[in-house]
Design a protein around this nucleic acid. Structure first.
Lengths: 289, 289
DNA sequence: CCCTGTGAAACACTTCACAGCC
DNA sequence: GGCTGTGAAGTGTTTCACAGGG
């Protein structure tokens, strides 16, 4: 799922929004030689699971377990064993037939594959509730991702240490990030400031962005963006609930007009306090016309 | 990859019976046209994107835009137009050839499909930094997902209003959730308490869970779990950085993997790949209760 | 023409099932 | 016998490209 896909034009700067420059290739099959050439590629889906296996393995290591079978590891990770073996096969053959895998070896190999042998300094932009949570996340469950810079707009926060690191002003993103060699930027600002922050991070040389703001960021091709969108997650859950209710064919029209829409007035007015850059809000979503 | 396979194994038995990879479809009516036959099935991947389209559409509506073409909407959502049209076709034909889609109509149809015409009360468990962020999300994404219950273990928090709602004790999850008709539970507790909290939510009748704790929850088949794991997201980013840096991996022999990661398929110029099967998963984060 | 809707082809990911080694 | 590693089959998703309505 999720979903990610940020297509974009690489115009150095944002926006343009449309610029629909789709180029259609015309007739004749175009052919994509690429297909097979993809030799040693690890499927994107497998990469995501490797990270999960790593965490499970760390837990096993803590329990002094030294070896584990694909069946056990798979159960703990919530996937089926064939898939797990296939995933592990992408990084090499480190198991022993008839026995299983050595926990320590597997941990080392997965870390190497994921590039965790290297340190990745993280910068968090937008120190609201979510930003605080990120900053305090501290080292992280698998060490390797120290948060080394925090940014916000609120003058009252400047210099204030959060999770041990003083907050800097957003205007200093470029220099501070360059100086501290930040490689990953986490955007936890409100929607409106996200693209601007993103542009600055890119300008500072950050090529990996974790975006919590509910907006599709426009970035150059060399920048990798992963989005974490709570509203989307909830809506997906909503879809499944709805579907479950009427498993019987014939959906259309789930029931008269059950609308309650109007209600909700209460919403939560108080909500937006002055947290300069609050957590990533999610908007969008309206209720029937 | 949604979290479908979380938890419980259920196969383990099977094998011979139908395993006969043979074509069992023989003519005869009924049976196994499964894949195809399943009428109104909307691909999981498409559901995740519909939520994104919905948000973009809301933004267009706010700008008083009344119609939009697949090209425009696709660009704004970061996907290619063919995919967008295909996605929309799963929910019906609401466009006008030669013109485009009417924003208001599309919004209504997507909301209906995602089951947003119904209200989903959310319960947040674990009121640490993340829990606060979730509670303050305000009415949440716009409206539609009101947070109606908060839980924690800390005695000092009992009764304290966060985002307008008083915190209750975790021991009261079952009764409070049942009473307030909670349909979605968000677990923002530390790892160790997550499974227990999950069990209580399930006991309370909650069938949709959004899990922020870095642990694989075990749940009955009828419960849908989506995981948001920050560590996993960061590790995926790390993988891409590593890969980018040295196109030449030295691991187990590398062949000439050739090619940059970016390039990607011909066809559309912009648009990066990415998207594993699941939607955007995300990760964990622990906050203390 | 412009733009949607969609079958069909291409590609990606998952599952099966079994050969091979301990 | 138990378990890994992997070709091959199966299933899901994306892209192509074009029919057809306005």
């Amino acid at each position: 799922m999720t979903a990610h896909e940020q297509g974009v034009r690489s115009d150095s700067v944002r926006a343009t929004a449309d610029a629909s420059s789709e180029q259609q290739q015309s007739r004749e099959t175009v052919e994509v030689p690429a297909a097979r050439a993809r030799a040693r590629e690890i499927p994107e889906a497998a990469v995501a699971r490797l990270a999960v296996y790593l965490r499970v393995l760390s837990g096993l290591a803590d329990q002094e377990m030294t070896t584990v079978s694909s069946e056990e590891l798979a159960a703990a990770a919530g996937v089926n064993s064939a898939k797990l073996r296939k995933d592990l096969s992408y990084i090499g053959s480190y198991g022993t037939r008839g026995v299983g895998y050595e926990v320590a070896v597997l941990i080392g190999q997965i870390e190497r594959t994921l590039g965790l042998t290297r340190k990745h300094s993280v910068a968090v932009v937008g120190i609201g509730n979510l930003g605080h949570a990120l900053a305090n996340y501290g080292g992280f469950p698998g060490r390797g991702f120290p948060v080394s810079a925090l940014f916000d707009l609120d003058p009252d926060l400047m210099g204030v240490p959060v999770g041990g690191i003083p907050v800097d002003h957003i205007d200093d993103i470029v220099e501070v990030c360059a100086e501290r060699e930040v490689t990953i930027g986490a955007i936890a600002t409100p929607t409106k400031g996200a693209q601007d922050v993103c542009d600055r991070l890119v300008e500072a040389g950050v090529r990996c962005i974790l975006n919590f703001a509910p907006v599709v960021l426009q970035v150059p091709d060399e920048v990798e963006v992963r989005k974490v969108d709570l509203a989307v997650e909830m809506q997906i859950l909503s879809f499944h609930v709805a579907r479950r209710g009427s498993e019987t064919t014939e959906d259309v029209d789930s029931g008269g007009a059950e609308n309650d829409t109007g209600g909700d007035v209460a919403g939560s007015p108080a909500a937006s306090r002055h947290m300069s850059a609050g957590a990533a809000p999610v908007d969008g979503m309206v209720v029937r016309p």
